[in-house]
């Protein structure tokens, strides 16, 4: 049973780390949002699923509470994360940050 927790935790931390390094590696705001949002959301899903599995395995009042609350945190994270990054991308474009090396920019043509 511990092997399952370790597997989920390993996947979760690996993808969270990928998100953090994508933040350092990519050249401009938009590509950084790509890396950071996708990878940290996916990594957090697995990290929190490990906690949920652990809670249900532990059972009883305390384990069940832990699992349900962690699930609720996951639900809010899934809703808020893409929405927040979308708001940041739009704000960056309106603040006049150009995508580096873009081959096409339809939003710029619209104005």
């Amino acid at each position: 049973m511990s092997a399952l927790f370790y597997l989920l935790l390993a996947i979760g931390t690996a993808f969270n780390g990928l998100g953090a390094f994508a933040l350092m590696r990519f050249p401009d705001v938009y590509t950084r949002i790509h890396g950071a949002t996708k990878c940290t959301t996916f990594g957090s899903i697995f990290s929190i699923l490990a906690v949920v599995a652990y809670g249900f395995y532990k059972g009883g009042g305390e384990g069940g509470t832990l699992a349900l609350h962690a699930l609720l945190a996951l639900f809010f994270l899934l809703i808020t994360n893409p929405t927040g990054s979308h708001a940041l991308a739009r704000a960056a474009h309106r603040a006049g940050v150009k995508p580096v090396g873009a081959v096409v920019d339809r939003l710029e043509e619209k104005k």
């Binding site: 990928l18 390094f21 050249p27 996708k38 995508p99 873009a102 920019d105 339809r106």
Partner: peptide, 21 residues
């Protein structure tokens, strides 16, 4: 798939970005 795609682009740095409609 998206995460492996990001991993591939972090390692190779192969991007051709743009904003489409």
């Amino acid at each position: 798939r998206a995460n492996f795609d990001v991993a591939y682009r972090v390692i190779t740095g192969k991007i051709k970005p743009g904003i489409v409609r």
